[in-house]
Amino acid sequence: MSDQDTSPRTEWPLWEIFIRGQHGMSHRHVGSLHAPDAEMAIKNARDVYTRRNEGVSIWVVEADKITASSPSDKGPMYEPSQSKVYRHPTFFDIPDDVGAM
């Protein structure tokens, strides 16, 4: 296989799967799978990731539509925030009634 390979893609695209476990919670990334289109990706996600009653809602996103930060940028991206404790709102009491935030 050369870089110039122009044969049609025979692998189905990869989809990233997000599932909401219960109402009020946010969707969480649970894994990925292959499917020919978004509808089949949802069906496959239902069969692969919710067969033990894990979810009430599914999002699917084609993996190559996701733009990710680069690991090599780790220093400038994240290290500056390590020493800034004053950015953490840890001085507030949150009433229990508020629930998951």
Partner: peptide
């Protein structure tokens, strides 16, 4: 043919 179908059929 693929693992997703395998799991779906088993379900």
């Amino acid at each position: 043919p693929i693992i997703e179908e395998d799991i779906a059929l088993a379900n």
